[in-house]
Each structure stands twice: as structure tokens, then as C-alpha cells.
Amino acid sequence: MTGTLESRLSALGVTLPEAPAPAANYVPYVISGNLVHVSGQVSMTNGQLITGKLGADMDVTAGAAAARACAISLLAQVKAACGGDLDRLHRVVKLTGFVNSTPEFGDQPKVINGASDFMVEALGDPGRHARSAVSAAALPFGVAVEIEGIFEIR
């Protein structure tokens, strides 16, 4: 049975994928009290990495779409952390976004808005969060964006 939050996602045309497995020696999330700390999720859609460097071969619109894809993976991890019940998610606490960009590129916040806007669109007020958006000279596998998050659960 689909819960309330997954119904909202479905209305947006989003089906959460299976939570991506870690690519190295770490766990995908850690639960501490009522907080879920989700490891960085790289930009990926339909099993394919979204690669590129903002300011070189990728524009802000494509970067924001990559950040949105990261947000979807973050929610998939939260769902896994909640034993499959996404309705246990109470709020998004903080996102930290890393943007693969040239030294001259300065629109990292606009790129990470792709994730922030999605969280608010999908979750409403509980999707509003604290945030950092920073540049990275390179990211794993050449991905455009990587985002980690902290979520409060019930």
C-alpha cells in the first residue's frame, strides 16, 4: 500500500527507486535518535550517472535536474531507513550539496535549488531545510552533483 508521501510523489510523476547501494566502505545512512544522516547521493537517473562540469559542459538547468535526481535518491534512502514507510519522515533538516564546477562558476546555489525546490514541492513545509551549496573541483565518477542530507523521522 502506498502512503501519503508516496502518493504526493506519484502525483508529481515520481516513483522512488530502490535505495542505491554504497559504492565504497560506508553505510548509506545512519540513524541517531530521531535523525537519519544520509550519505552523499550522486546524480543518477534510471541507473545512469548524470555526469558533467558546471561552467564547462553543463548549464544551470541541467545541473538543477541532476540535483533533483539526488533528492529523489535521498528520499529513497530515507524510505529504506524507515523500513519502507516514508510517512515516518517528519522533516528535512539539512542538505549539503556539492557541485562539480569550474573555478569561475558561481551559481552553485541555483544548481542545488533543484533539490531544495523538489523537497518543498514533494513534502510541503516539512521539506524546507537549512542548506549549504559548495563547489567541488571533481566528484566521484565525474558526476555533476552529490548531495547528503539530515532528516528527522517519527
Results as ranks from 00 to 15, higher is better:
N100K: 11
S39V: 10
P17L: 02
A65E: 12
A62I: 01
I50N: 00
P22A: 11
M44T: 09
L16P: 07
M44Y: 08
Q77W: 02
T51A: 07
L75V: 07
A66F: 03
P103F: 05
Q108K: 11
E152W: 07
A11T: 07
A21H: 04
Q108M: 15
M44D: 09
L89H: 02
T4I: 10
N100C: 08
S7R: 14
L35C: 01
G33P: 02
I31P: 01
K79D: 09
D85W: 01
K110Y: 00
P20R: 08
S7L: 13
H37N: 14
L12G: 04
F118K: 04
E104N: 10
E104P: 01
I150T: 15
A65Q: 15
I112H: 04
L49H: 11
K94L: 07
V143A: 13
A67M: 06
L86V: 10
S73M: 05
V78D: 00
I50H: 01
V120M: 07
L123F: 15
L139F: 08
A24E: 08
Y29C: 00
H90R: 15
V14H: 06
V120T: 14
V38G: 06
A80D: 05
A24Q: 09
P140D: 13
F118P: 06
T61L: 14
A11E: 14
A133Q: 09
L86G: 02
P22I: 02
R68H: 11
Y26C: 07
T102M: 03
V120L: 11
H37Y: 15
N34K: 14
V120H: 08
L16F: 11
L75W: 03
P126Q: 13
T102F: 00
A19T: 10
Q48L: 13
H90D: 12
L12C: 10
I112R: 06
S43R: 04
L12N: 06
N34M: 03
I50C: 00
D117M: 08
A76D: 05
E148W: 03
I112G: 06
V120I: 15
E146P: 03
A122L: 09
V120F: 05
G142T: 12
A71E: 04
S132Q: 14
E6K: 05
D57Y: 03
S32N: 12
N34H: 10
A65G: 02
I72M: 01
A24H: 10
I147S: 12
A138Y: 14
E104C: 00
D107A: 15
K53Q: 15
T51H: 06
A133E: 13
Y26E: 13
S39N: 09
K53S: 11
A24L: 04
E18M: 07
S101M: 03
K94G: 03
T102W: 00
A81Q: 02
E146F: 01
A56K: 12
K110E: 15
I147D: 13
G13H: 07
A80M: 02
S135P: 13
I150G: 08
I50D: 02
V38D: 07
L89Q: 02
I50S: 00
I50F: 05
G142P: 13
G47F: 04
F105D: 09
Y26S: 08
V36Q: 09
V42M: 15
V143S: 14
